[in-house]
């Protein structure tokens, strides 16, 4: 088992408020890890540390060590843009750009200079859309606006967009919370397929979803990592009483 991401003693502060307390957690390569916990427990904040999306927030400060392939991503010689090329992200609400489906997918490869040949770019777009299971539905209308798709399709477009830059890790921040059950199940299937090529870390508030899609689960509470381990273990016989209470629905 190889670790794709290792984190050591991560603390996150918003101004004076500490949002993450000393978390150390490793993520296995080509596995799906679910981060669960009640809202406000810091799971999204933690997720956003992994591709430094927290940099955008002026008052946010991250301490500790986060490494991808043994490289500390918060060290200065790492370009945040290169990091995000390696670590893609899918958001809670589908957020396709108000551009064509094609341009949505091609945007990442373009800014990273993958190719400047039209046919190669077509290939990249098609592959990404195929991997995201969207190609068949949109292949005849690649010039339509990405925003004209249905919610579930939009989210798959966002996944295709993330895949197109050939990341190693995909972060998903409650990717199904804005979708209906059918769209959700399609995305969940997709996640299972995608883990063959990518390391996936998914934040979810739905325990069923965590149980369905993940190999590993980590339970967060009030900025602390309470417990982590194999999903089956966490959901059947957790070590910690709080975890037990949460997964049995006593609080959350």
């Amino acid at each position: 088992m190889v670790n794709a991401i290792t984190t050591e003693n991560v603390n996150v502060f918003y101004g004076d408020k500490q949002a993450i307390n000393n978390i150390s957690l490793n993520f296995l390569k080509n596995k799906v890890t679910a981060l669960i916990g009640p809202s406000g427990c810091g799971k999204s904040t933690f997720l956003r540390c992994l591709n430094r999306m927290n940099d955008v927030i002026e008052i946010c400060r991250v301490e500790g060590k986060i490494s991808i392939n043994d490289q500390d991503i918060y060290k200065d010689q790492i370009e945040v843009e290169q990091l995000r090329e390696k670590v893609g992200m899918v958001f809670q609400k589908p957020n396709p750009f108000p551009k064509s489906i094609y341009d949505n997918v091609a945007y990442g490869p373009r800014i990273h200079g993958f190719t400047d040949k039209k046919n190669e770019m077509d290939e990249i777009v098609a592959t990404a859309l195929k991997k995201a299971g969207l190609f068949e539905e949109v292949k005849n209308r690649l010039d339509d606006l990405g925003t004209s798709l249905s919610g579930g399709q939009q989210q798959r477009l966002c996944i295709a967009r993330a895949i197109a830059v050939k990341p190693e890790v995909i972060l998903m921040d409650e990717p199904c919370s804005a979708l209906d059950p059918i769209a959700t199940s399609i995305i969940e299937e997709l996640i299972t397929e995608l883990k063959e090529s990518y390391t996936i870390i998914i934040v979810t508030h739905s325990m069923q979803q965590a149980a369905r899609v993940s190999d590993k689960t980590a339970f967060f509470h009030l900025g602390n990592l309470i417990e982590e381990g194999d999903t089956t273990k966490i959901f059947t016989k957790p070590d910690n009483q709080k975890t037990n209470d949460y997964i049995t629905g006593r609080f959350g």
Binding site: M53, E85, F91, N95, P96, Y107, I111, R161, A162
Partner: peptide, 26 residues
């Protein structure tokens, strides 16, 4: 909306690219 900015940032766009490719046209 900030989600557009986040989407582009998450793909590895620089702040300038986010602004000139996405936010300004919108």
């Amino acid at each position: 909306p900030p989600s557009i900015r986040e989407g582009a940032l998450a793909l590895g766009a620089t702040k300038n690219q986010v602004v000139f490719h996405h936010v300004l046209p919108l």
